[in-house]
Design a protein around this nucleic acid. Sequence first.
DNA 1: CACACCAAATAAGTATGACTTTTAAGTCAC
DNA 2: GTGACTTAAAAGTCATACTTATTTGGTGTG
Lengths: 233, 233
Amino acid sequence: MEKHGQGLHARVLASLGPAITAGEYPPGTVLRTDELERRFDVSRTVIREAVRVLESMYLVASRRRVGVTVRPTEEWNVFDPQVIRWRLAGADRPRQLRSLTVLRSAVEPVAAGLAATLATPEQCARLTEHALGMVATSRGQQLDAYLVHDVAFHRTVLNASGNEMFARLGDVVAEVLAGRTEHHVMFPDPDPAAVSLHVRVAEAIRERDAARAESLTREIATGAMAELDVLAP
Amino acid sequence: MEKHGQGLHARVLASLGPAITAGEYPPGTVLRTDELERRFDVSRTVIREAVRVLESMYLVASRRRVGVTVRPTEEWNVFDPQVIRWRLAGADRPRQLRSLTVLRSAVEPVAAGLAATLATPEQCARLTEHALGMVATSRGQQLDAYLVHDVAFHRTVLNASGNEMFARLGDVVAEVLAGRTEHHVMFPDPDPAAVSLHVRVAEAIRERDAARAESLTREIATGAMAELDVLAP
DNA sequence: CACACCAAATAAGTATGACTTTTAAGTCAC
DNA sequence: GTGACTTAAAAGTCATACTTATTTGGTGTG
């Protein structure tokens, strides 16, 4: 779960990215490269590379004779994993968490339905394994161990869906789940209903019951949504 | 040196991006920067900027003493609009189109459901306007005009959902719809059933009937999926 | 006064060469 | 064969000079 390793440009990015996504530089703000050079005490090359990356995330636009201007929020590439991480770490984590949970509520049920017809025996086995792992760690201050199984479960479902885009959302789901334990947007012990739903989803997928897998996953999603409403209003 | 339209690095990207996503450089392939310099006849600065962008899309990884290596397909950021465009233009357009259609089938129904409770009167008006526009242009070689209304309709639904991530998928949906007319992955005249479904979705949203809006949109999605199965097997 | 046009100022874009740092790989002693 | 040492390849960084597009503003003409 590392980030674009080291390198000076990564350091600049790690500073500018969070600042921009946190709204520290409101849209329309103009950054000049030579100012940035001085501020970070690095060469033009480094700044330019960082700016190019921010540009590819649609966070900024670079125009001659004007400078590097921060783009309006609606244009940001909010699907970029890096942008998601920056926003989850920053000021509008609640808003981001909501958006992502809604996305999950749309995607995961369909993914579970697909998984029911496509999952390999190994994937089915891993699903039950992790569902049981969740049961085993659902009581008594084992949130970290629980999280591991929870993440693995959802990742396996997304991978088993056979859709590359769904699979790619595994990381995002992991961030969301990790974020909600880490920031205590969660009850001290996981909701027993949710835990048993996971077990039943694993069952449904193993039994190739797409409709049931989908509707059970939808229940999990609405549960997560409700939990979010209670704990991060 | 030579003069070029929108920046040299963009030209390099426009060449390398499609090539990589098309599998022309299979994962594991190593590109050396000075080789690229010579190939494109540009300076190191330009190559490095292009590589940084490709890196931020997880298409390549740059390591010292090794070079710029193409990453495995599963790691690509397939949500990046630019990557999507490259792949839609390239060899695995069918595969990409399928992935995106599945994604749509997950997202759009939920978006429509949310839109039913959140859409503003203006948005409702635009929905009916475009739905009727679709009806009006659904017969007799007016695919281009039809496309405009179709895109606008789906964009409006996604925007009205109130979820920034859904809204951001508007561009992707536009690409898909444009792509399927452009590449004739579509019947000469639009499916009348689909057209009438759009009208009814607009109705449902206007009448704040979330469940109906969702299930009608789900029908549209399964229809699109079926059409894809017939025309691009 | 309005308007078209031109010229200077500005900031990004590009090129180049010298230098640094990381690290794969080869070599030698043990 | 194992471990420590050397080497060299390639990316990373820096400083600087130069190019190009674009905005601003001023100037002359209708």
